[in-house]
């Protein structure tokens, strides 16, 4: 443990954990390194010691338990109090981030440091490394959003998601980020931008017609930009033509999501028989996991029509 090797702790009395003696509930069989480091951590936290040795101690504790919920805040205060080199801190966080890609606190900490440095130069390259490890890392994508807003880095975002979507057309995180990149800015996107998005998404759907992420993006863009869903009717029909009913060949219907959107379009037009056929096909053949749901949609729409008379 570096904190022990590099510094003297003779003046500090470690504070053992009060675990309630023999009645402890769910005690963890700590290894000694962790148990002892935590005893010293409690002791320096109690007196709020801001020192080189307490900084080193936070490092050792974080490497054993990065999810500790106040050690990061303590570390930040030490860094600021000792006026440490914050660039160095970012380098260290990069190491820890790769070691614990699922950890939440790291990103919060990095945000505080980068905000203080007021310089995003290291960020996008590091984020890319992290997204290579896990292309759907929720914390990393959230952090990227914060970064883009904070430093006004919008220009790179749509092209970046294009690359990510080309790599994996089913990456929902990348689709979500694209929605943010188009609609998250103060300026409303132009008609041309929206039309381009619709074409981009249709092309992606043709590569993987069952891909829920792309379909949700497509309908999301339509709604957000105030375009009617019925604009998608002919596109949907190329992927799922229910007109031949149950005699249809599987080849005529390659996308359950397309059938769903068609049903919504027909329902909007009050064409309940057509909508019902699509829902029936979904319930009985193309999306049987959701059989109860499609039947429910059908009876709901029918009841609504009956109620109108």
């Amino acid at each position: 443990m570096s904190y022990i090797e590099e510094f003297s702790w003779d003046d500090i009395t470690p504070i053992p954990q009060n675990d309630g003696g023999n009645d402890a509930i769910a005690p963890i069989a700590y290894d000694d390194d962790y148990r002892i480091a935590m005893e010293y951590l409690r002791a320096v936290m109690k007196i709020e010691e801001f020192s080189e040795r307490s900084l080193k101690l936070t490092e050792d504790v974080i490497l054993m338990n990065a999810a500790h919920y106040t050690v990061w805040q303590y570390r930040t205060r030490i860094l600021f109090a000792l006026d440490k080199d914050l660039e160095q801190e970012l380098v260290w966080v990069e190491f820890v981030g790769q070691k614990f890609p699922k950890n939440y606190q790291i990103w919060n900490h990095r945000e505080v440091i980068v905000n203080k440095l007021d310089n995003p130069i290291r960020e996008l390259p590091f984020i890319e490394v992290m997204l290579e490890i896990d292309t759907k890392n929720y914390h990393v994508w959230s952090y990227r959003q914060w970064l883009v807003r904070r430093f006004d880095l919008w220009a790179t975002e749509v092209p970046y998601t294009t690359i990510m979507i080309e790599q994996d057309v089913r990456n929902n995180s990348a689709w979500n980020h694209r929605f943010f990149a188009i609609f998250g800015r103060k300026e409303v996107p132009s008609d041309e931008v929206v039309s381009d998005e619709i074409e981009f998404t249709k092309a992606a759907i043709l590569k993987a017609p069952q891909n829920t992420s792309a379909w949700n993006y497509l309908t999301g863009v339509m709604k957000k930009s105030g375009r009617p869903l019925s604009d998608l009717e002919s596109f949907c029909l190329t992927l799922s033509n229910p007109s031949s009913g149950f005699k249809t060949q599987d080849l005529d219907i390659t996308s359950a999501r397309s059938l769903e959107v068609l049903a919504d379009i027909y329902a909007e037009k009050q064409d309940i028989p057509k909508a019902s056929l699509a829902w029936t096909l979904l319930a009985e053949k193309y999306d049987t996991v959701r059989e109860n749901y499609w039947n429910h949609r059908k009876s709901q729409a029918t009841a609504k029509i009956l109620g109108a008379f």
Binding site: A26, I28, A29, Y30, D31, M38, N65, A66, A67, Y69
Partner: peptide
């Protein structure tokens, strides 16, 4: 689990009430 958790639970140390 209520009697003893193995060392692998160390990352949940500060959220032990959740485990309990």
């Amino acid at each position: 689990c209520l009697k003893i958790l193995p060392q692998q639970y160390t990352p949940t140390d500060t959220t032990r009430l959740a485990i309990i």
